[in-house]
């Protein structure tokens, strides 16, 4: 979700801004020699489509969700053009809609365009393997969507933790809420992406297969590393509520040398007061969010791929 200004500190905004500028710059460089191609209208149209697609509501109990679009962009346009399309969506959302802050734009691009598209693409291609049938493609897209949302949540938790001093918040509770909420968003995104991939597979399979054929076998190792990173980040999201209560390395060192007694602020003692009564529900709820997320994404993917069986002839008919 879009981070507004006010949650992250200025140094963290600067660091995430630098990181995402570098990543977007790299994507731009990869695309530079294909400018005369239809890249520009395709990226522009895809960004406009994600915008329009976000207007379509998917009703849930009480609230309604919408498409995020990271893995969709990655699956259709490939990682570099997909990253640009999402970046443009985020820049325009920030400038014209006020969705996400101006200084937090770097963080938003990092979460949704870099982790969401690069990471989502890496996981998608990793799961796709060399000969991808429709079922596997659906599974890969859904799992990649869920993992990339969770990885983005982990990145946000890390940035939030770095933005504020140790005792400012009850991090364990904040992170539990963030992770549980994003687990739900991730399931929604996985289902919408899965439905869209299914639709595209049925009507224009060449759109989905295009970037796959182009990518070839180069960069296989990098992709495995990137996919591993995304998976590790997603796991880290579920561990963050537990890790947050451990003191940092620096603080631990200070404590051991007796320095901590000098600089321990009153906020820290407030922090430990809050922590105790709530300890019971968080591990259970966070673990539940993780398990429910994994199980429901896999089950839904299986259910949806079940209905794909009759489509093989469709694709062959199109290819012929």
């Amino acid at each position: 979700m879009h981070v507004p200004d006010g949650l992250l500190s200025v140094p963290v905004c600067a660091a995430t801004g630098a990181a995402s500028t570098a990543a977007v710059g790299y994507s731009v460089r990869r695309l530079r020699d294909r400018l005369a191609d239809r890249t520009i209208p395709m990226i522009g149209m895809m960004a406009a489509l994600v915008f329009a697609g976000q207007m379509v509501n998917f009703p849930l109990v009480g609230i309604s969700g919408h498409l995020l679009g990271g893995v969709l962009c990655a699956a259709v346009l490939g990682p570099w053009a997909g990253c640009l399309a999402m970046t443009i969506v985020l820049v325009v959302q920030c400038l014209l809609f006020g969705d996400g802050g101006l200084l937090a734009l770097g963080a938003n691009v990092l979460h949704m365009a870099v982790i969401g598209v690069w990471g989502g693409y890496a996981v998608y291609r990793f799961l796709l393997g060399s000969d991808a049938g429709p079922r596997r493609m659906l599974m890969a897209a859904m799992i990649a969507s869920w993992l990339s949302v969770m990885a983005a949540a982990a990145a946000f938790c890390l940035e939030f933790r770095l933005s504020h001093p140790a005792g400012a918040f009850d991090y364990r509770n904040v992170f539990s809420l963030i992770v549980a909420f994003h687990s739900l968003i991730g399931i929604g995104e996985a289902v919408i992406t899965g439905l869209l991939v299914r639709f595209l597979y049925r009507h224009r399979p060449d759109l989905l297969y295009g970037p796959v054929a182009e990518g070839g076998s180069s960069g296989g190792v990098r992709r495995v590393v990137a996919a591993g990173l995304v998976a590790a980040l997603a796991i880290a999201a579920f561990l963050s509520p537990f890790a947050s209560s451990l003191p940092d390395g620096l603080e631990a060192a200070a404590e051991r040398t007796g320095m901590a007694r000098l600089e321990r602020s009153p906020a820290w003692s407030v922090f430990s007061d809050y922590e105790l009564p709530a300890i019971g529900w968080q591990p259970a709820s966070v673990a539940a969010a993780g398990i429910i997320g994994v199980v429901s994404v896999v089950v839904l993917a299986l259910l949806m791929s079940r209905t794909l069986s009759g489509w093989k002839s469709d694709r062959e008919g199109l290819a012929a």
Binding site: I40, I43, G44, A48, F51, L84, A85, I88
Partner: peptide, 13 residues
């Protein structure tokens, strides 16, 4: 690339 695609998006959204 960025400005051109943004202009294209703004045109067609």
């Amino acid at each position: 690339v960025l400005t051109a695609t943004m202009a294209c998006m703004y045109r067609y959204v």
